Computed example of a mutant assay.
Amino acid sequence: MKGLGVFDLSGRVACITGAASGIGEAAAETLAAAGAAVVLGDIDGEGAARTRDRIVDGGGRAVAKSVDTTQAEQVSALVAAATDEFGRLDVMANVAGVGSYGDVVDVSEAELDRVLAINFKGVFFGCQAAMRVMVPQGSGSIINVSATAINTPVGGLSVYAATKAAVAMLTQSLAVEAGPIGIRVNTIAPGFTLTNFVGGHLRDSEGNVDAVEMDSYLKLMRDRSPLGEVCEASDQANLIWFLASDASRFVTGQILRANAGQSITW
């Protein structure tokens, strides 16, 4: 698009999981605004359709599908929708994920399996499906989502943090495999970000959160940042846009952090 320079995504096709809300929704809208045609997947099919409708109403190109990322064949079908509808795949953003709260001694096998399936296997399946299209093209950008939790151990987040650390290593390993083909692979590692993900450990059985407890939690997160801020979904979406664009043509195998300084690492 005029004026975007190396950030222009006109003619590109992006596939985004977790596109019904939060970072995935923001990424879908950001990439579409930069000119990309977007294929949106989420287990919340109606939510993905709402994101699609906003993009289309704004003049963009988008399709949406209900997808359970723990099922490899559904992820492959989502990627196939990109090639069927738009003829190629330039960007794969594996955003879908869930939180998990509980001390190691208390985590059930069912919860362990659930979080591994969504946070790691879903990303792995997305990488596989994207590679099957991108290898013949000889180009592409795969963008995964890890978390600041990989750098800042916190009690009660062991399963979540472990799955996100696995995503980071998957990203770096695949970058080595994919680089000679012309495919870049990176991950973002968001800090505390204001989405419907926030405060899961504060919710009761009906999904309600006490406003006073939430305010206290938000203050705690701000206090952990040198900037005294927490991130918006758009902050993470902008990193995904950077990694999708030619502005990052020399970036692969990296962990990029928009976290307001909540973790500062080499």
Rank of each mutant, 00 (worst) to 15 (best):
A64S: 15
I55T: 10
V63D: 02
R52N: 01
E73N: 12
R50S: 13
D68T: 04
V63G: 00
T69A: 03
E85I: 00
I55V: 14
I43S: 03
R61T: 12
V91F: 06
A64D: 05
V75A: 04
S76P: 00
V56A: 02
G47C: 03
G45P: 08
F86W: 02
F86A: 02
I55S: 07
R88C: 10
V56M: 06
V75N: 00
A77K: 06
D90L: 07
D57N: 13
S76F: 10
D44P: 08
D44Y: 00
R52C: 05
A80W: 04
G47R: 02
G87H: 08
R52Q: 14
A62W: 13
G45S: 02
Q74A: 11
M92I: 02
A81N: 03
A82M: 04
T83E: 03
G58T: 12
T51V: 12
I43A: 07
V75H: 04
T51C: 12
D53A: 14
D68I: 02
V67C: 14
I43K: 07
V95I: 14
S66R: 15
R52I: 05
M92A: 11
A93K: 01
D84P: 02
R50I: 07
I43N: 05
R88S: 14
A64W: 13
R54A: 11
R61P: 00
V63W: 09
A48R: 10
A72L: 10
R54C: 00
E46Y: 03
